[in-house]
Design a protein around this nucleic acid. Structure first.
Lengths: 166, 166
DNA sequence: GTCTTTCTGAAACGCTCGGTCCAGAAACAT
DNA sequence: ATGTTTCTGGACCGAGCGTTTCAGAAAGAC
């Protein structure tokens, strides 16, 4: 998962994978069906993990939970290259429906977490606002990858939040 | 440019390019230095074109110019796969500073167009808001690529705009 | 016409890719 | 120790990649 995260699917070679896992090629193919299969499993794993972490951020945030979630999404500290699933959506979803489906499910879960954070009693009513928050956080990932300074991105998020808040 | 747009850099082969241009391999290498060089030129061309179009959308919009711009950015009708430059930022910018630089310049120009549309007299004062608009539009591109229905995306944009408006 | 320059189709180059194969090492049971 | 099963390093495969090369066609100059 970590290798795919760093390099993307196409740019990751079998040698990269076996090297990172300490496996020989034969063991690799004895354990996994193919690079594709491993990749899809890595995506599922990433999604589960990411959603669990985000939920924890939302639950343990002191003060504004939405702000904490946006910060976590927009600045994946430790994550080597933004959000793995967003990268994959951009790279592969238009040509691979399985990837698109995993990505769709992941994004919808994020929106739901936002909606619950905004209004725990009536999350359905704030669904569109939740969607706006998550789209905004995802958008800033592109800025970050392009090398826009972190403080400018933070100001953007802060500005958006202060206006989007109820 | 169109081929790179559809398939991304890595997935585009020399045969794809020469086929689309009606050139033989020798003519291709006689005209361009390499796939890389052609790619960077295609990016520059795309950026120029896209900014010109967006400016025209902003200038000729009847009613809310910001809304028209966001619609244009988020739904690249005719564009085969979202915004070429956003795709490239995701795929290549972390490993190629030249791509990152072109992307950064492009994003900054988009923000400036938004700022001018929001307040022609004092664009600098609304820079952060402009940045939020463009990040939001870019974020929805990911939703679209993942296959989220268009009407949901439109509602998201509308919701965000109505709250972000001054 | 002929000479010169510019172009181009096709073959080939060296390399890397994802995936397969198998002789033999390692582990285990008896 | 022996027989059986499980694993693995490394060679190998066919295919595709970006790039180079070059004989010969096309075009132009005179």
């Amino acid at each position: 998962m970590r290798v795919f995260w760093q390099k993307g699917f196409e740019a990751t070679s079998l040698d990269d994978l076996t090297g990172a896992m300490g496996l020989s090629r034969s063991s690799f193919y004895g354990t996994f069906d193919s690079k594709q299969t491993l990749f899809l499993r890595a995506l599922e794993h990433y999604s589960r993990n990411g959603l669990r972490n985000l939920k924890e951020v939302a639950d343990t945030a002191e003060g504004d939970a939405v702000a904490a979630m946006m910060q976590a999404l927009s600045d994946p500290n430790g994550g080597p290259r933004g959000c793995l699933l967003v990268n994959c959506i951009t790279e592969l979803a238009p040509h691979d429906e399985r990837v698109a489906a995993i990505g769709r499910r992941h994004l919808e879960s994020i929106e739901e977490l936002f909606a619950r954070a905004i209004d725990p009693d009536n999350p359905d009513a704030v669904r569109d606002r939740a969607s706006a928050y998550s789209s905004l956080a995802i958008g800033t990932l592109a800025l970050r990858k392009a090398g826009v300074p972190a403080d400018r991105i933070d100001r953007t998020l802060q500005q958006a939040r202060s206006v989007l808040s109820p």
